[in-house]
Write a protein that binds this DNA or RNA. Structure first.
Lengths: 326, 326
DNA sequence: CTGAAAGCGCTTACAG
DNA sequence: CTGAAAGCGCTTACAG
């Protein structure tokens, strides 16, 4: 079913059908009616491929995430959806699982002109080739940063936030503060580790220990915590760079017969719903996840509308929310 | 940058360039090299819109979910991704939030020929018009069912599973078993409620109480449980139709100063990671989420390859996993 | 207000 | 093994 058939059915030209489809106001009422009738009768659906090929516009944006199952990620995506929708854009989600092949495959949607722009929450230092694949197509990074300033991004000041957590734990008398970090391919992971280490250093805390979780899952957090607890000297506080990891860490601590927070305090990061669902409830850094997502869309749309606009780095406010776990 | 320019650069016809792009083996080695060189030099990326318009094939499938933040949903999607990838398909995720407008908008990707088929985990009884929008495009429902047998689907026997849970609780001496259900627009919600009620009836349990959660979140589960606990006669067991709801219910029970499972037993549904992360760990019905996702892709691909193939209803195995909460 | 025609960037019989 | 040409289904100046 094409525009041609509708034109024939309605007894007008394809141009007129197209005008009706695009709400052009220059169509005579009678013709409009006939076209509309033909469309209804034949259950016609416009072919978006053809339209987008012709107009070079899709009003779709691609969101690439490494793990949609991570609640922080899901919350950011929610913000992205809201703002996109408000501006007449639709979002397509691509779950890369941090897999290079899958990321590449997802990016062909951008290079192949299926979408108008891309928002990534993935680490791209791992795969510089992908940056070249994106080329100068509209792109913003969200809750993650490029090393260079070539691409717009939005997030929080990770160094500050990490410093705040560690200082806060030290103020409470914790002596042996450990870090459960994520893959250092992520810039945010490197920044938070920098914050952690700087406070360990300025406070002259002798204990320092970092374990890396392979992914942002409770299972990975639990495994990392088990490694920390198995060491000769045990930490009396654990700072995990995500709530999910922290939830796993709490499990590990309890299974080792220790108490949270008495024996080991735990602080998470993100401020997801999960923080309130687990026992004890989790002290965590709240990120303005919805706003981060919203802002990312804002930056992207200005880039789409004006490709020459300058890149921006937006830092949002965060806060530490103390609960029972630390 | 188009195939035309590559052709000019390489000194061949567009047909030859296209053949190289599609790995046709009939291209002379020398010409292939020249084309490849031109492509590399100009950083050419094929326009997928044009290709898909021409071939009427995208090797993309759309997955419509109502709430990707629900871990069961995320797990099914993971299975879908794996199986799709194995078959050379890419998946596009569309988070409808059960919103009609957004669902409709997502479906234009199908009707607009951007994708070859669709897998839905959404309730469509709410929006029969969407079913007509899909028309006879390849479609399978996943962990949810149409009333009629017109569309292929894969899931578990929800009536049986619900009956099993309630019988099991009754066997353990629970007298007042309540149900926290989801929106009855979902067929699975109606089926589980039917299972629940049938056992209440055959066991001649006098207490019966159903509360509905507005969405599959812990917050909604907590609110529903609070309503149950506020009633004149309090339940001594709660069966929630999702682990997320159950997690919220546990919170509500504890906040009311009661113990799980001593005062109120809690059973969930889905068998997500969450069940092991919360305290007490959750007794739940395990659904084979990955396999459900995988199977859905299998059904869809046979439908894509052979539009005349008959619709199927696949029921997978499930099991009750007892843990501390009941 | 309307239609004929060009063109978006590909693929693919067809002829050579 | 290769190229000229048609065509996928749209939109949009352009002329009337």
């Amino acid at each position: 079913m094409s525009i041609q058939k509708i034109a024939r059915l309605a007894g007008v030209s394809v141009a007129t059908v197209s005008r009706v489809l695009n709400n052009s106001d220059t169509v005579k009422a009678k013709n409009r009616e006939r076209v509309l009738a033909a469309i209804a009768e034949s259950n016609y659906q416009p072919n978006l491929l053809a339209r987008q090929l012709r107009t070079a516009r899709s009003y779709m944006i691609l969101v690439m995430v490494s793990n949609i199952a991570n609640p922080f990620c899901a919350a950011v995506v929610k913000g992205i959806e809201e703002e996109a929708e408000k501006n007449g854009y639709r979002i397509l989600l691509c779950n890369s699982g941090s897999d290079i092949e899958r990321s590449r495959s997802g990016l062909t949607l951008l290079s192949g002109k299926i979408v108008d722009g891309i928002i990534t929450m993935d680490a791209f230092s791992k795969l510089p080739e992908l940056a070249t694949l994106i080329g100068d197509a509209p792109w913003v990074q969200c809750a993650e940063y490029a090393d260079s300033g070539a691409v717009s991004c939005v997030g929080i000041n990770d160094v500050d936030a990490a410093q705040h957590v560690v200082s806060w734990l030290a103020d409470k008398g914790r002596q042996r503060i450990a870090l459960i970090n994520h893959d250092l391919h992520y810039k945010y992971a490197r920044l938070r580790e920098r914050g952690y280490k700087s406070v360990i250093h300025t406070r002259e805390l002798v204990y320092q220990s970092v374990e890396y979780a392979s992914e942002l899952s409770a299972a990975a957090g639990k495994a990392a915590a088990e490694r920390l607890l198995a060491a000769e000297t045990r930490p009396d506080a654990i700072f995990a760079v995500s709530d999910t990891l922290a939830a796993g860490a709490i499990r590990a601590i309890e299974q080792a017969g220790l108490r949270v927070p008495e024996d080991v305090a735990v602080v998470g990061f993100d401020g997801t719903d999960l923080a309130e669902m687990i026992t004890p409830q989790l002290t965590t850094i709240e990120q303005p996840s919805h706003e981060i997502g919203r802002k990312a869309v804002g930056l992207l749309l200005t880039k789409i509308d004006n490709p020459d606009s300058s890149t921006e780095r937006v830092m949002m406010a965060w806060q530490l929310t103390p609960r029972a776990s630390a």
